[in-house]
Design a protein around this nucleic acid. Structure first.
Lengths: 218, 218
DNA sequence: TAGATTGTTAATCGATTAACAATC
DNA sequence: TAGATTGTTAATCGATTAACAATC
């Protein structure tokens, strides 16, 4: 029983750090496009608004990607962050709820570029079933479980109304998806080890409203 | 020069607190719908996942809404949070970028219920101009500034591609909007006192991807 | 009154920032 | 080598949790 014995997840990286990674990744992508191949934490600080110290701390959670006296190699760091974020592999996804929001996501080329491939939309509305968004077919939600199992779908996206979200999430789990991207304004009650990322458009708008009120109405 | 002299914004409430308010508000709304009129911080804790202590701390930033030995009155607290979040007044909004995402937002009844009224969509695509989403017309983006000035539009929503977002944000400011709700995956460079709330769909998806990779691929 | 639960202060914990030795 | 900038430890700051007196 050595005291050095590691716990389950080793020293787990905090969610606050993880949520900053996409922003680093984005700016590094911009630099790459501009043909800049070297960057210091100080310059990254100027771009992102995070402190240089924080940037170095964040990156060192994952490895020493930099070089003293030089900084970071843009291409290398961009690649490493991509790997950390899982953007080096392709994920199959489906969308349940083929209304405007579902269609918007299906239509957005940016997701496909990042390795997220939407294979199908599902809905229960007969008027929608059979239609195509780009080349993505809208199918009957009753066929969803089979489709997921047959096509190695790993990500289930929920763009349904609030009322059906919980049931659809359970259907996703039954079908074997690994993660759920939930746009319905509700908290899904799911097994603790299930990976869920919520997009809370309502809450975002309320925050905007809060600051408007704070600035103008008092 | 009394030392008690207050600074500009008094004791400013931290953004981490503010970002929890919509969740309280949502659960209180649910309770209201169920006809429950009394709630303790402990019960709210069970629902929201925040600690009871944190909930009491959060609420006391804005006032003593509770009563010792009793808890909180659901209707009263819901109303107070609504006021704090600015949901007691109606905001006029417009959307620039009338693609699927813009249309999805225009279509979403939930926003209107919360007091956000979308008066118009704008786009530069002649095929879209003149169409209607529900009863909301899509207009030529060239007419946007005039429209905003004539209709007391306070919120400008950006659902355009990344490339045009900065320019459109500046147009919004020129026209006099008070706040911007930005869905384009870029950081807008605007005056410090401008109110901007970003929705980062890309980043949200990357976070989901991170956890998938962490759980399954190593 | 006795029991319950807030409002609030104090203690703890975690995240950010500062500092600097290591090193390219 | 001298200068620059990282990686990392220590100090600070802020946010969360615990505790309990106040009070309904």
């Amino acid at each position: 029983m050595d005291k050095d014995y590691r716990t389950d997840k080793e020293n787990k990286i905090s969610i606050t750090v993880i949520r900053r990674l996409p922003k680093y990744y984005r700016y590094l992508g911009d630099l790459l496009d501009k043909g800049i191949n070297r960057i210091s934490s100080q310059e990254l600080s100027k771009m992102t608004g995070f402190t240089a110290s924080q940037i170095r701390q964040d990156l060192n959670n994952f490895g020493g990607f930099g070089q003293q006296g030089y900084g970071y190699n843009v291409e290398e760091l961009h690649g490493e962050l991509g790997k950390i974020l899982g953007l080096d592999s392709v994920y199959n996804a489906v969308i349940v709820g083929a209304g405007n929001l579902g269609q918007a996501i299906a239509n957005y080329k940016g997701f496909e570029d990042a390795g997220f491939k939407v294979l199908s939309l599902f809905d229960k509305n007969p008027k929608l079933i059979g239609l195509r968004i780009r080349d993505i077919e809208i199918r009957d939600v009753d066929t969803m479980v089979d489709f997921i199992k047959e096509n190695d779908v790993e990500i289930g996206i929920i763009t349904s109304p609030r009322e059906s979200a919980q049931e659809l999430a359970e259907t996703y789990i039954e079908a074997g998806v690994k993660g759920i991207w939930n746009f319905a304004p509700t908290d899904l009650d799911l097994p603790d080890d299930m990976i869920v990322e919520n997009v809370r458009l309502n809450e975002s708008l309320f925050i905007l409203s809060y600051f408007l009120k704070e600035k103008y109405n008092r």
